[in-house]
């Protein structure tokens, strides 16, 4: 049984919050470069140029890429041979978010109750998804999620008879309805199958896959490519101001489902598709 001190988890999470909000992963930077090269709309190209300049300023001057530094979504893959010492894992993660958002001058965007709506003042609590995995490691993935795009995400409980065409229509409907509100160019995470909540979780996890990488399942890869092409024919464009680059990637994850169902969740992320990964 390996022991991990909760203080190390807190420190690590805190650093991850600051890192993710100031630097995008290389795949996202590359996706923006490609988008700027491919865009034919002059205004669209200008918007993409501003987004690249924005990334440069964020890194060099330590200003968050976006003022919406998100609600902290944490995926924790906990080895079953790990024992956390000095407190609970959940407390350690929330303490890391508290520290990172306070010391990193990140925006506190969380209200303690969805209807009473009083800001918690430290961006906690995080939304934490735990997976128990073999081994004695602890893998933490932080994905701060902005709500401009989160608000445009959807779930569709399709009938099995609607099949793959139904899935395509669902994704295209969600993207079209999102339009300029979701800060395009977007990354689109799609979860197909499972149950109502499993599909939603898959769609969130799909956003973690690097832009430009595809599913290992041949038909899913084809689906991703077709959806990206069709989304980019929508005309929405960068900033919603018209153009050919509305999305930079469509990532699909699937899971077994019930004989009666075909859940499809579409989690839309803006171009600030942030994540930070650490293994302890």
């Amino acid at each position: 049984m390996r022991e991990i001190d909760s203080k190390i988890i807190t420190e690590t999470l805190s650093e991850m919050c600051i890192e993710a909000n100031h630097y995008l992963t290389p795949d996202m930077e590359k996706a923006l470069d490609n988008a700027e090269k491919s865009e034919i709309s002059p205004l669209g190209k200008q918007v993409l140029g501003q987004l690249k300049e924005n990334l440069r300023i964020a890194g060099s001057d330590t200003i968050p890429i976006c003022q919406d530094t998100g609600m902290a979504v944490v995926f924790a893959e906990v080895g079953q041979d790990v024992h956390i010492t000095g407190g609970t894992l959940t407390d350690a993660i929330n303490e890391g978010v508290r520290k990172g958002y306070t010391e990193g001058f990140l925006r506190k965007s969380v209200v303690g109750d969805p209807l009473e709506r009083v800001n918690t003042g430290d961006n906690t609590p995080a939304v934490i998804h735990y997976d128990i995995v073999p081994g004695d490691g602890l893998k933490l993935t932080l994905a701060p999620k902005g709500f401009g795009s989160e608000n445009m995400s959807r779930i569709f409980m399709l009938k099995p008879a609607e099949g793959i065409e139904g899935v395509k229509n669902a994704v295209l409907t969600a993207v079209n309805d999102a339009g300029p509100n979701a800060c395009p160019p977007m990354v689109v995470g799609v979860g197909i199958g499972g149950t109502f909540e499993k599909a939603a979780l898959l769609s969130k996890k799909a956003l973690l896959r690097p832009a430009g990488e595809h599913s290992d399942i041949p038909y899913v890869k084809e689906l991703e490519e077709e959806l990206l092409t069709r989304i980019n024919k929508s005309g929405i464009g960068p900033g919603g101001l018209g153009g050919r680059i509305t999305a930079m990637a469509v990532n699909v994850l699937t899971y077994p489902t019930h004989i009666a169902g075909l859940p499809v969740a579409v989690n839309i992320c803006c171009h600030v598709n942030r994540h930070s990964v650490r293994e302890l």
Partner: peptide, 13 residues
Amino acid sequence: FAAVGGAGALLSK
């Protein structure tokens, strides 16, 4: 007016 969404660092300048 629209400002470019997600360009918060640039706009802060």
